[in-house]
Amino acid sequence: MLTLLLVAILLIFAIQAIRARALITSALWLAGVSALSSVLFYSYGAHLVAVIELSVGAGLVTVLFVFAINIAGDDAIQAQSVPPWTLVTALVALFVLLLGWFVLGVPVVAPVSPVAEAPLSVILWQARGLDLMVQVVLIFSGVLGLLGLLAEAEAPLKGSMAAEVAARRDREMQTLDSQILQIEDVRK
């Protein structure tokens, strides 16, 4: 019963994270989703994942979101979807129905005999050693990519590209206007 209540609150938090207009509110609802999912992970026996999810998902990623929103600004873009609403609703309903039909129909394969599972450290370093190597490569590539993006950000920018294009168009229009005036003067 408690698990069902937790899942219900988790889904409400997720809906609020999508519905929120302000980005900072959305990021805070997402932190709530991470915290609640870490409680769920703990209740399912995944203690290590629960701790990491709480520190990384609810801590680090939320701080990054708040940092980025402070830099980029909290633009209130009206919630109009690019595709039509009917298509979105139909696709999401189809997605959920197919997923429910597929996932809820799969029988749970219970272990034939209760086998003592190896400790997590043994599983991580021996059975899933390749996963750890992939994680190390991912972390390095992420750090390098982030450094590249932030190094580019240090270059002085004269303004947004859209403003530059608009200013160039204004200058061209003024030049054209002056040329037209000169031609009219010559004709007179």
């Binding site: 026996g45 990384v56 990623v61 749970v108 219970a110 996963d131 991912l138």
Partner: peptide
């Protein structure tokens, strides 16, 4: 399935990949 260690190890990989995706997405957005 009684293999919570295996599930945790896979979930750890997903958390790392997800965090990298979030960091790169935020940096690109900025």
């Amino acid at each position: 399935n009684g293999q919570i260690g295996l599930g945790q190890s896979m979930a750890l990989t997903v958390i790392v990949a997800d965090t990298i995706v979030a960091v790169m997405g935020i940096a690109l957005g900025v």
